[in-house]
Design a protein around this nucleic acid. Structure first.
Lengths: 241, 241
DNA sequence: CGCTTCTTTGAGTTTGATCAACAATGGTGG
DNA sequence: CCACCATTGTTGATCAAACTCAAAGAAGCG
């Protein structure tokens, strides 16, 4: 892993606002010290760094404590972004499900990033220690795999407009669950190039489509912030196109 | 499950040519009777039937003993085919990885299909009983999830020509590993409509593209059989477009 | 043989890509 | 604080890929 620096004194898991959303969320709520003990490292990564490379075997799973990152595959024709990670996400979940697995994708930071890292075996033990926690973790993993199916379908069948509306809607909904979106307005460090790489479009066309969405008052944005004016209407666009 | 009829006297797993390719393949090779004992049912399904529906919880995992099927999601805009299953494939692998999970997709038969079904718990036990078998099964599952990532990338970034070449190449390679393709020639019960639904194209355009591949002597086909004349060249097309 | 499901072909249209500038933004060092 | 540079975003013109609509041929099946 490409670590830029070790972060300032780690906050105790006891006061972490994001732990409840992590894969060990139940434990984080009922017994934060149990999480704190397992957390071996807190790492920071500068913006724009590939900090996990395709083919690596991960000894740790990571909770994205702050910042955004994305998961991608490199293809002859360019890169395909598979997923955008927001604060509270678990990274390298598959290393937990399949210990020893070589990851089939890389990870790159969009912003400076802070990761809380747990040895795979310790994380697994934490889940095993509590039946309800194990169930919750399994549900998270299921959602995650089901989402992959859906994403595949989204790319295959929707127009540029529909795909972008869908992506924005999905990101907003994930941020909202973490209390990181207020009234449809949220930090948005994704550049148009990344949207293009995630949806199989060109940057130019992403720009024109975003412009249409802006002109038609669906959304507003500048380089740092996105605001969705009418989530329901945006959702309709996503469904219909 | 939508069972059309119970099949004729089940063949013993001892003489099954496909068991070695299943998720319990190692056990099937070293101790076929252990597999036979766990196999509770052999079912047949007529062609063109949806035999597992989205949202169902599976009590069994199934090995596709004969015939082809596909996995799909229904969307407002039509269906998205996620995967084509060939003989020897495991169906509903995720029910084994996550017992009790509601499947996020449906399954439909392309041809008449025979399934060997194992209670989830028995299958899990069979894997646990042998360390090397457990490892092999985990590897299979990993490949499977990695393939999903790749498929997503394929749809996003390739032209119609590239996608079709890629799909044909991948199917041929999977069939070959099961000794179901000889010299690039194999049974092919997939209709052009299914290719379209898998790749996010229209049937008409799939037809024109297949026609181009035929005219340029990459492939030959009629309704039942596909022949790939030069696998390497087809692979190049898949990579480049 | 008659019906249904698939495949094939034609003509015209739309979506999104390509190529090429140029403008705005956000650091950075001086 | 300003000048400079590297990214990122915006716009125009043109082109190609893929879609739509429509209709006619094969194939397969009862």
């Amino acid at each position: 892993m490409d670590i830029t620096s070790v972060s300032p004194p780690p906050v105790s898991c006891r006061v972490c606002r994001l732990g409840q959303f992590a894969i060990y969320g139940l434990t984080a709520t009922t017994n934060p010290d149990a999480v704190n003990i397992k957390r071996r490292e807190v790492k920071t990564v500068a913006a724009g760094r590939t900090f996990i490379r395709e083919g690596e075997v991960q000894t740790h799973v990571h909770t994205l404590y702050s910042g955004w990152a994305f998961r991608y595959i490199t293809l002859p024709k360019g890169r395909q972004i598979l997923f955008f990670h927001i604060p509270g996400d678990i990274i390298a979940l598959e290393s937990l499900a399949f210990p020893g697995m070589a990851l089939p994708f890389s990870l790159k930071s969009l912003t400076p990033v802070t990761l809380c890292s747990f040895p795979v075996e310790d994380a697994a033990e934490m889940l095993r220690a509590s039946q309800p926690q194990a169930v919750q973790a399994a549900v998270t993993a299921q959602h995650y795999f089901a989402d992959m199916n859906r994403h595949l379908a989204d790319i295959g069948r929707r127009s540029a407009m529909g795909r972008i509306a869908q992506l924005l809607g999905e990101i907003e909904s994930r941020l909202r669950r973490r209390q990181l979106s207020k009234n449809g307005s949220f930090d948005f460090p994704i550049r148009q190039e990344h949207i293009a790489d995630a949806l199989g479009l060109t940057t130019v066309y992403v720009n024109r489509t975003l412009d249409r969405l802006r002109k038609e008052r669906f959304i507003d944005f500048d380089r740092h912030r996105m605001t969705i004016h009418d989530l329901k209407r945006l959702h309709e666009v996503a469904e219909e196109e």
